[in-house]
Every structure is written in C-alpha cells, then in structure tokens.
C-alpha cells in the first residue's frame, strides 16, 4: 500500500471548487493528507468523536490516521477486531446516541460483510422509528477503485449497490480540496453517509488545501469545464481519464466538451445534469464499475426522461466490462482515455 508518489498535477481536476474558501492560508496536501486533516479537525472540535477500523491505531494501512491516536487518545482513535459487520454495527450503536462516528472499512471490496448493517439498519434507522431514532452522525469511509495491481478484491467500485438504498448518501471526491470539504460536510450531515475515496489518487493528487474548516455541500455536482457539444459525466478517478480524452477530443474533433463531476452519487444533482444535456444534446457517462446495473444506467434514465427531445445521439456509457476486475487485464478493463475518446467520437459522429 505504500507506493512511490507519482505526482500528476491537473489544475482542472485538483484545483479548487467554487464552494471552497479562496485567498486563505493553505497547505500543499495530498488527498490522503487532506482527508486526515478533515478528520483531525472533527476530532479536535468534537470531543467525543471517534475514528476506528482495522489497523487504525498505527495509522491505517494507507496512513490516513497517522498521528491521530497520539493526538486524540486511544479511546477515540482505535483498532477494531477484524470484522466489517462488527465495525458497521458498532458504529451504528455509537451514532444512535449522537456520537460522531467515523468508521473505516479497509477496502471498499470488504464492505460486503457489513452490507446488512448498512443497508437494513443504518439506512432505515430513522424511517422505521417514525423519526424517533437516527444515525445521522455516522460516516463510513472506504478506499475504492482501481490501483493497477489490485485485481478482483482490491479494485471494486460498489457505489451502485448503496445508491440503490433509500436512506443512505454516497459521496466520492475527485481531489484533495474536494475531499476535505465533502468529508466535513458528510460527517456533519444528519444522515448516514458512505464516503468512497479513489485510492489511486491518495498520493498522486496534490493541491493547496485551505487550512480552515469548510464544507462543500452534498447533493451538488460541479461543472469543471463548460462546453457546448457534449456533456461528459463522471466521478472520482474516472475524471482523470475523462479529462485526457476531452483534451484530445477538443483538439482532434474540434469540439467543446462540458465536464461534470457528480461529487455526490446519492442524492443526485439532477438539475445540473439535465441543464447541461439540454444545452449540448450529447452525453457520455463513465465509471469503473461494470456496466450492467451500474450507476450510469440511472443517470441515463434521468436524461432520457427529461431531455428526450434535446438528444441528438444515444446516451453513451463507457464502463468496466461485465466481468470481475482481472489482474493482468486491468488496463483493458476499466474505461481509459482511449475508450472514452472513441466514445466521444462515435457520439459526436452519430
């Protein structure tokens, strides 16, 4: 899990968001350090907030919690036994009496033993009790997605399973500045939130992250670049590949693309998507997860229901193939700039 930092700077992706403070003191931070900083702010301000998970005491396998136990004490930053259903259930219990709870699942691939606790319990805690109880102070973080050598069980993108569950919010940051603002908003949101962190960007994404406490609102997409010929919709790591494809498409196809980072998968910012597609008439959606039943299908349906008469080409999805994530074929598996470029081209030439 310790990999040499290959720093790829992209001012478009890892630059700021309109909701983040500007012109304030900032520190150059990786996404990992930015997430750590948001947790540190939470533990500092909220004296009963807890951070826990497998191997958290020594800092976590990705080192997100580095130094936090020393600073905030072993009662609030601690190891759990190796049991994801235990982590989720324990976290729900803490949140049920209002304690701010940040639980780590070591890899999103290992969230499935906790599925019942998250989907049947956390998601329905409020609804089933007529609003008497809730676990709004619960946040579950998990690194997700490709790392280029993770194969079947260190690469998955499980967002669609959770987005299908009413009562949960699902958030995915794309860069260090967004990670901090979205994480602080997710922790304070009065609903259980799943926060999936693109682990490939942990060390490679770097930005000047404002030092102060700030939030980026949930349920709000961000237009990274305006354009008029095609709308490109993505989130997390996929935006890196989409940006490369976009640069090539704008040059070679002489078009202008609009690039949207959803930031929150659920609840989804329908307006931003609909307005954009009405303007461009063409759309491509990308994600790493398999295509069938993937989240792109939901977005496509919303576009179809709301923009039908504006569409000039079929909605195009570029996704992981409908197979598990296979080691020696990884680069062929997930959508990359070449597949996305070809997708843009066929949509434009339709």
């Amino acid at each position: 899990m310790q990999r040499a930092a290959t720093r790829k700077f992209s001012s478009l992706l890892f630059g700021t968001s309109p909701e983040a403070p500007s012109g304030v003191p900032a520190t150059r931070r990786t996404m990992l350090q930015s997430i750590s900083n948001a947790i540190d702010i939470t533990l500092t301000k909220d004296k009963t907030a807890c951070l826990f998970g497998e191997d958290i005491a020594f800092g976590g396998v990705f080192r997100v919690a580095e130094g936090l136990r020393q600073k905030h004490g072993e009662n609030r930053v601690f190891n759990t036994p190796l049991c994801e259903q235990g982590i989720a259930g324990f976290a729900i219990g803490l949140s049920a009496i209002g304690i701010t709870t940040i639980a780590e699942i070591q890899f999103a691939d290992y969230i499935f033993p906790a599925f019942d606790q998250i989907v049947n319990e956390a998601a329905k805690y409020r609804y089933r009790s007529g609003g008497q109880f809730n676990v709004g102070s619960l946040l579950i973080r998990a690194p997700y997605g490709a790392v280029d050598h993770g194969a079947l069980y260190h690469s998955q993108s499980p967002e669609a399973y959770f987005a299908h569950t009413p009562g949960l919010k699902v958030v995915i940051p794309r860069g260090p500045i967004q990670a901090k603002g979205l994480l602080l908003a997710s922790i304070r949101d009065q609903n259980p939130v799943l926060f999936f962190e693109p682990k490939m960007l942990y060390r490679s994404a770097v930005a000047d992250v404002p030092n102060e406490d700030y939030e980026i609102p949930l349920g709000k997409a961000e237009i990274l670049k305006e354009g008029k010929d095609i709308t490109l919709i993505g989130y997390g790591l996929q935006l890196v590949h989409m940006e490369k494809a976009m640069i090539r498409a704008e040059k070679e196809l002489k078009i202008s693309c609009e690039l949207i980072d959803l930031r929150t998968i659920s609840p989804l910012d329908r307006e931003t998507i609909i307005d954009s597609v009405k303007k461009t008439g063409r759309v491509l959606i990308a994600h790493e997860a398999p295509k069938f039943g993937g989240f792109a299908g939901e977005i496509a349906t919303i576009i179809n229901e709301n923009c039908f008469l504006h569409l000039e080409a079929p909605i195009h999805r570029v996704c992981g193939w409908d197979t598990p994530f296979p080691l020696v074929f990884e680069k062929m598996y997930y959508p990359d700039e070449h597949r996305i470029f070809e997708g843009i081209k066929s949509t434009i030439n339709f």
Binding site: L82, D109, Y110, F112, P113, H149, G150, A151, L152, Y153, H154, P324, P326, L327, V328, F329
Partner: peptide, 24 residues
C-alpha cells in the same frame, strides 16, 4: 488461475486445494 487474481492467490483442483480469495 488465468492471471486473474493477485500474486499468492493459488488454487489447485488436482491437489484438492480450493482457490485462495482475498476476502477473509
């Protein structure tokens, strides 16, 4: 295993050993 899993994820039907898989 056809190159599908990470290293050390062995498995061998002829040896009557089920396949290693990462989920614990």
């Amino acid at each position: 295993g056809e190159g599908k899993q990470m290293p050390v994820h062995y498995g061998c039907n002829a040896a009557k050993i089920q396949h290693v898989s990462s989920p614990l």
